[in-house]
Design a protein around this nucleic acid. Structure first.
Length: 267
DNA sequence: TACAATGTTTTAAG
DNA sequence: CCTTAAAACATTGT
């Protein structure tokens, strides 16, 4: 499920295990989740260490452990983090299990599109430090976005929004939500966006990110009823503004939903 | 049955 | 080297 705010939601699921010692580590080392990872150091370093803190940036998460251990997790399409009671028996798709005195911290992923990384050192690993600026941070400006769109001018806006190097954390539903709000057709080329709609795009980008972060997993939860989010999944979805049936087509390799009324344009 | 699923990565080509 | 499109990946559910 995980885009920006859902990733942050899953990161928090391991909070009950903060400051507590990891007694043992179980992994499905043969799964592609662990491709390129030094598994022995991971298991050896984490067993006996304490979970100190965690962060999320876009779709990436980083968990810091005592003893200079850094566990990176990407949830892919179907990954989830959860906490269970002590002694919980790991299920078939529970690929990483950290056992503590009182809790069991679990990374589960049926489709195995997720990724685990492990680094050791006094500072956060280089790949983490090189991640692009968060969309909601000060460093991410309208200019940041415009420069990126210019570089990918031949790509559809839908395709551009899905690139993590320019829109970290945006995924399929958020991209559609943003374009719908901005009133821009998803096949519009990144290079052809004019100043006014670029401005609108930037505002909608930030709005959707901010609201999603604020509301998803907040307890009172749930996105407002008038978001495209609630309509885009089923074939009979309608535009929350007009009530018009949504169009759906594969754009940039992903199923895309849009309102022909709000988002006029080609096809 | 066949296809689609909230995502990258690899491969190929321009 | 850079950008883009399409296939590949693994599993489940409709």
């Amino acid at each position: 499920m995980p885009e920006l705010a859902e990733v942050e939601f899953y990161r928090r699921q391991w909070d009950p295990g903060l400051y507590q010692k990891v007694l043992s580590v179980e992994i499905h080392a043969e799964k592609r989740i662990f491709k390129g990872v030094n598994k022995d150091p991971l298991v050896e370093a984490l067993a006996g260490s304490r979970l100190i803190s965690s962060q999320s940036r876009g779709k990436q998460m980083l968990f810091r452990f005592s003893g200079d251990g850094w566990l990176g997790i990407h949830l892919g399409m179907t990954g989830q983090l959860r906490v269970a009671g002590r002694g919980t028996v790991a299920g078939k798709h529970d690929h990483l299990v950290l056992r503590q005195e009182r809790h069991t911290l679990i990374f589960t992923d049926p489709r195995c599109f997720g990724r685990v990384r492990f680094d050791q050192g006094p500072e956060a690993p280089a790949w983490w430090q090189r991640l692009p600026a968060d969309i909601l941070s000060r460093r991410y400006t309208a200019k940041t976005m415009e420069t990126f769109l210019r570089r990918h001018g031949a790509l559809s806006l839908k395709g551009g929004l899905l690139l993590q190097s320019g829109f970290p954390g945006i995924g399929n539903w958020m991209a559609d939500e943003i374009l719908w709000r901005a009133g821009i057709h998803p096949t519009t080329l990144c290079r052809s966006i004019q100043h006014e709609s670029s401005r609108r795009l930037w505002k909608c980008l930030r709005f959707v990110c901010r609201e999603a972060m604020r509301r998803i997993g907040s307890g009172q939860d749930d996105l407002p009823k008038n978001w495209l989010f609630h309509q885009r999944w089923n074939a009979k979805g309608i535009c929350p503004k007009h009530g018009l049936p949504l169009r759906r087509e594969t754009i940039a390799g992903r199923t895309t939903a849009w309102c022909p009324g709000c988002q006029p344009g080609a096809s």
